[in-house]
C-alpha cells in the first residue's frame, strides 16, 4: 500500500497578489485543499493568483487536471495565474501540456508576484 502525503495549500497575500503554497502531492487527494485555497485566494479579488510549487512533491495527470481546472476558473473570472517553484521535470510537463502557454512560469516568488515573466493568455 502506498503512503500518501497530506496535501495542504495555505494562502498568503503579497502586494495584491494571492499566493497558494501547494504542499505535498498534487493528485486526486489534493482536490479539496486546492478548491478551498482557490476560493480563499479569489475572495480577496487579487490582481493575480500565484501557485507556489516550491513545497510540492509528486504531480500526476490528475493533478495536472486540477491545475487545468484552476486555470479555467481564472480565465472565466479574468484572474491571471502564475507559477514558480517547479522542478525542471515538472516544468517540462507544463510545457508539453501547454500549461506554460497559459500561465507564466517564474523562477522565484518575487518575480511571480511582480509578474516579471510577462502576462499569461487570460
Amino acid at each position: 500500500m502506498a503512503t500518501h502525503e497530506v496535501p495542504a495549500a495555505p494562502v498568503r497575500r503579497r502586494d495584491g497578489v494571492a499566493v497558494i503554497d501547494i504542499g505535498g502531492d498534487v493528485n486526486r487527494s489534493a482536490e479539496a485543499s486546492l478548491e478551498a485555497a482557490w476560493l480563499e485566494a479569489v475572495a480577496g479579488e487579487p490582481k493575480a493568483v500565484v501557485l507556489s510549487f516550491a513545497g510540492a512533491g509528486y504531480i500526476n495527470s490528475t493533478g495536472i487536471a486540477l491545475i487545468v481546472g484552476l486555470l479555467a476558473r481564472g480565465r472565466a473570472a479574468g484572474i491571471e495565474l502564475r507559477a514558480y517553484g517547479l522542478t525542471p521535470h515538472y516544468r517540462e510537463i507544463f510545457e508539453i501540456t501547454r500549461l506554460a502557454d497559459f500561465m507564466a512560469i517564474n523562477p522565484d516568488e518575487d518575480s511571480a508576484v511582480r509578474g516579471a515573466e510577462g502576462s499569461s493568455d487570460v
Binding site: 495527470s61 487536471a65 487545468v68 481546472g69 479555467a72 480565465r75
Partner: peptide, 15 residues
Amino acid sequence: LEAKLEGLQRPRGWG
C-alpha cells in the same frame, strides 16, 4: 488544453 479551458474537453485525459 485550449479545448479543455473552453469546456469542450474534460479536464482529465492527460495520462
